[in-house]
Design a protein around this nucleic acid. Structure first.
Lengths: 208, 208
DNA sequence: GTCTATAAGACGATAGAC
DNA sequence: GTCTATCGTCTTATAGAC
């Protein structure tokens, strides 16, 4: 039986997404050309159009996949009914995921304005779903009297901004390990909702 | 005496910076053309080159001016020797300034990657100077035993990210006034360094 | 100081050979 | 599925008239 070329095509499509993600993250969507993407994939620009009808559709695909992956990973986390434990688990998840996929995070945030209206509102809905998860934890914790929060919606956005900011400075091989950073951010988040976090020092003895 | 056209030129230069800032903030540096900028200013593209030798120099000018203005405004603040008061004053300043100049903030952060090496390192030095100011407050407060901080450098970046995030969601005419938002963020920041912030409610009575 | 005109090339996207 | 070649348009930047 003649080997179909379909399998090669699938590989190429993945490659295109991977290389486009890296290029968009480094230079920005508008500054990257179809020729550059093709070059990184070892093909000619025309061949890209076998997989994506427009440059915009590559960006849309990347952002959609990133948000769906994020939500799926969140969904796969064990459910915590205690608000304090739920918040701690969410903080750990967010930091770990964001350190793990810096390019996807960067593009999903920075290139929102380059999405056309329909893809934009689709991606925004996914973002809001993620935000709603944290907001739910904060509301629950406030209702149960576990947290001290002035304003739940503002605190939701503040916590997400604070944690996502880890991508602006973290690089592997720096002063702190991922585990240490995770623990520091968990304490920061717990502090924000008025909890006295456990001291960091004894925990670190077990890790270092 | 014949009226020189110099005064008109200065006006045009300011206009160019103003319109370029708005366009860059909305669509991104790479997605905006010199023709678009000229169009918003009511002149032709060629005339832009009387003021700026390259498109890059417009971006560089915008970012440099933004960072210098920010540092000058910070410098004009009354000096606080008590770490708690200094941190509260810094938080208020940061929120107010960022709500006041959202376009400048947005461009100064998002377009860093579009700066060529030399302008980039110049702007980064100014950013770091701003970060160093907050880090100094945190170190001081920790040394004096006023703050409980696991890691000063990480907490510095976390606080700045948290506060700068206000620009991603704040719009005038929303549920909260600037004064209310300012107070909420001050409390968030104080919480992060382990301080029990005053309750929000009694304060608000005096404002609303 | 601003204009028109244009250079020199890159852009996204398409057509058709293989 | 990938190639080469190309269309039509847009880009930054410059030159020279006024």
């Amino acid at each position: 039986m003649a080997r179909t070329t379909g399998s090669i095509g699938k590989e190429t499509e993945k490659r295109v997404l991977k290389e486009a993600l890296t290029l968009f993250a480094h230079h920005g969507y508008a500054a990257v050309s179809m020729r550059q993407i093709a070059g990184k994939c070892g093909i000619q620009a025309g061949a890209l159009y076998n997989y994506f009808p427009t440059k915009q559709s590559i960006l849309h695909g990347l952002m959609k996949v990133h948000m769906l992956d994020l939500l799926a990973a969140l969904d796969a986390q064990p459910l915590q009914h205690n608000p304090v434990m739920a918040l701690e688990a969410f903080a750990r998840f967010h930091i770990r995921y964001h350190i793990d996929k810096p390019e996807g995070v960067f593009v999903a945030y920075m290139e929102l304005r380059n999405l056309e209206p329909e893809p934009y509102s689709e991606v925004m809905k996914l973002r809001q779903k993620y935000e709603r998860f944290l907001r739910g934890i904060l509301r629950d914790g406030q209702a149960k009297g576990d947290f001290k929060i002035d304003d739940v919606p503002v605190t939701t956005m503040a916590i997400i901004s604070m944690m996502t900011g880890v991508n602006t400075w973290f690089r592997y091989g720096g002063r702190l390990s991922v585990e240490e950073i995770e623990k520091i951010y968990v304490n920061l988040v717990l502090s924000v909702v008025g909890l006295e976090p456990e001291s960091l020092a004894p925990r670190l003895e077990g890790i270092v």
